[in-house]
């Protein structure tokens, strides 16, 4: 079981994730050559990058200042969500064993805290979705499930590191939920982790390149 899920299944997940994202991007790119002239006609690096950075830097866009708690939690959630899987030393050992490459490893203590941060901020996003009327009205069941799926690898990783509960089962759940997350990236709203960059650039071109106006 262990060998299956950390071997072939892991490979499969990575291939689906990366392959899926590439296929989606190629499809959108070729469609855009026909249907989205507006994207190319007004392309302007300056406006595009300003549009992008105003939403990558906390509180740079004025909308972020209107909901400061959400903005803070949102940034904290995304940063910890991305950094823990990449820089966890246990993951880096696996990278090294399988591919002979590894990234900088963060101290385990920090990873532990960041995992908790991901879980807490993820739950905040979940509760915000339930409690704010203008967000609840938009939310479907799958939006709630997606948050749970996203924090599941962190909950199980957090438990496994502390050896709380039945280690074996929790560890398997950790690997499986991580793989599920990878597989879902190209096919769900999680694809915003890649497509975000394109939509932000586009609105920068659209408002700036085309109209000389700001988009943040």
């Amino acid at each position: 079981m262990y060998d299956l899920i950390t071997g072939p299944l892991l490979w499969f997940s990575f291939i689906v994730c990366i392959g899926g994202v590439i296929i989606r991007l190629v499809y959108l790119f070729s469609l855009s050559r026909v249907k989205d002239r507006v994207l190319y006609n007004h392309a302007d690096a300056g406006w595009g990058l300003r549009s992008l950075f105003h939403w990558l830097i906390p509180f740079a866009g004025s909308a972020m200042r209107m909901q400061p708690v959400f903005t803070f939690m949102g940034f904290v959630f995304h940063l910890s969500l991305l950094s823990v899987p990449l820089f966890l030393s246990a993951h880096n050992i696996l990278w090294d064993e399988n591919f002979g490459i590894s990234l900088w490893s963060m101290p385990d203590r920090l990873a532990d805290i960041l995992s908790a941060v991901t879980i807490i901020s993820g739950l905040f996003l979940f509760l915000r979705r339930l409690s704010r009327p203008e967000v609840r009205i938009l939310s479907e069941v799958r939006d709630y499930i997606l948050i749970i799926i996203t924090i599941l690898p962190f909950i199980t990783g957090f438990l496994a590191y502390r050896q709380w509960g039945p280690y074996e089962t929790i560890f398997i759940m950790h690997v499986l939920s991580g793989e599920m997350l990878l597989i879902l990236i190209p096919f769900s709203k999680l694809s915003h982790m890649i497509l975000f960059f394109f939509t932000r650039l586009f609105i920068g071109f659209e408002m700036g390149g085309r109209r000389g106006a700001r988009s943040w």
Binding site: F29, S32, R132, D143, H192
Partner: peptide, 19 residues
């Protein structure tokens, strides 16, 4: 278009537009 597809797909329903 690629824009419409992307927009309708990735809206993560954060509700910030309401502000």
């Amino acid at each position: 278009s690629a824009r419409i597809k992307t927009w309708l797909n990735i809206c993560s329903r954060c509700g910030l537009c309401a502000e």
